[in-house]
């Protein structure tokens, strides 16, 4: 199969944003799975045992973590794409059609 030269879609990555996002995602995966930290009844919330409301709380916390990750990654993606001028090339490809 004929293949053109690999034209980069993104410039080189900066490690920091990816490290931060990686840590946040790891928290979002590991914390809800640490069963010993929440397998108990007290304190209850409106009669609901801790076990249940705490896990539901993590649904909201994960949403918050992911929202932060989304904005970090979006900014970094835009910077990397701007670095190779890829959106100008893409715009021209669009005009060619």
């Amino acid at each position: 199969m004929a293949r053109t030269v690999d034209r980069p879609t993104r410039g080189p990555a900066r490690p920091l944003p990816y490290v931060i996002v990686g840590v946040l995602l790891a928290i979002g995966i590991i914390a809800p799975l640490l069963v010993p930290t929440y397998a108990r009844t007290d304190p209850t919330l409106a009669g609901i045992p801790f076990f249940y409301w705490y896990q539901m709380l993590w649904v909201l916390l994960d949403t918050g973590l992911l929202a932060i990750c989304y904005f970090i990654i979006r900014a970094e993606d835009r910077r990397r794409r701007a670095a190779v001028g890829v959106d100008r090339v893409a715009a021209r490809a669009e005009q060619d059609r």
Partner: peptide
């Protein structure tokens, strides 16, 4: 928890 930890994985 299954459908909580799902989304960091999807992301």
């Amino acid at each position: 928890p299954y459908t909580t930890v799902l989304y960091p994985i999807v992301f």
